[in-house]
Design a protein around this nucleic acid. Sequence first.
DNA 1: ATACTTAGTGTAAAGTTTCAACTAACTTAG
DNA 2: CTAAGTTAGTTGAAACTTTACACTAAGTAT
Lengths: 231, 231
Amino acid sequence: MNSPDDLHQRPIVSVDLAIFALAPDGLEVLLAQRGAEPFAGSWALPGGWIHVDEDRDLEAAAQRVLRDKTGVAAPYFEQVGVFGDAARDPRGWSLSVTYMALIAKEAVTLMHGGNATGAAWHPIGSDTATIPLAFDHAAILKAAVTRLRNKVEYTTLPVHLLPEAFTLSELQAVYERLLGRLLDKSAFRKRIAEVDFIEPIAGEMRRASNRPAQLYRLKQARSTVFFDRTI
Amino acid sequence: MNSPDDLHQRPIVSVDLAIFALAPDGLEVLLAQRGAEPFAGSWALPGGWIHVDEDRDLEAAAQRVLRDKTGVAAPYFEQVGVFGDAARDPRGWSLSVTYMALIAKEAVTLMHGGNATGAAWHPIGSDTATIPLAFDHAAILKAAVTRLRNKVEYTTLPVHLLPEAFTLSELQAVYERLLGRLLDKSAFRKRIAEVDFIEPIAGEMRRASNRPAQLYRLKQARSTVFFDRTI
DNA sequence: ATACTTAGTGTAAAGTTTCAACTAACTTAG
DNA sequence: CTAAGTTAGTTGAAACTTTACACTAAGTAT
């Protein structure tokens, strides 16, 4: 037991992604249709193997998978966890290292190739995808959705589902759609102001047939900020 | 890239544990002294390989490692994350799946054997251990400590550092030591009462040379509970 | 010019937190 | 037997926050 030199003792390791975006009807996840066994034809979280001689670390492997599927380079990115047991993959004891990414849907161009015959956006129900998924991906996706929904309550994370420039009303609408309840406008703006993570873009306004709204952008070098209280 | 059938493409996977307990002087972590290369003689987080034909899943592997080191069976248990890159282990591209466990120090009997020549409790400084650790274990431990300290603010997690029966004053003292600040007694008791996760043990009191205090225990089937507001 | 719409601010009432003092129940010293 | 000491557990007034809602602002459309 000094070292796992018997390679058959090593589990199989994949890196899988729950890539979320917001559509008019609610949260969606990017799924890939599997081209090969096992689960050929089924929908699954996009993923891949670690390329031992190409990937510097786990996050680099996940970024590579993301780039290959979406053409997107650097969105919000967070490790959800590892899921591993003897039964989840018929090929043997396996691990899935799962990351979630948040992106603005407009920023994505769907890619094809690899194991997958196609990739498409699918709605999230109350919990997980509305269609059956390969492996234990339904449970994994559920964990990612739960993590995302929890973090909406006390972090600035939802801002990553918007494009670079956005108004405060748009940001509030994102929180409201993810939380499934309406928020008070003045309380919302107070919270956002307190944590100081966005800044007005001087002179830029969103125009419509009503009072124009100030556009904001993320402050540079600000990762996700936690509220003192819930939103 | 259909399957990692070239076994050399598979990373090495270990399961490592940050086992925390509370000593009079503050938080401590259980470390094992390595008996074999690499890092022979250095202190490290206790860990082991996944036993593909023995462990049902990742958590079972982690529980096995815990049992082998401490003789403790079922304390609080939570996955911290996976840490993986090409350089952390000289034997090759490797992953550490890390769990943290919280236990009452009295419940533990230290075990010996395996890779490790000994196991001992070590104090946690502001961040991580006060001595250098093998591999990237200092960074991993830091992540676990940060996670624990954050959760103290808004969960009932610290209760797992106490023995089965405890008084409210003892519970408050645990929070205070982990947070590094004093809490108001009435506010603390209000929070604890709100989330309803402990119950008085009928007729059992902690006696000293002053007013006796009611003893409490965790309510059955209650995992970690989140406060509505911070503690 | 007036109506309509959404942006952004202000405020009174309700609710929470904080701080500190108070009462309660025991042991120990005299 | 009583008084002092100690920690358990409760109470309440003042300070602060949140909530609900109304108000003002700035544009377009008619």
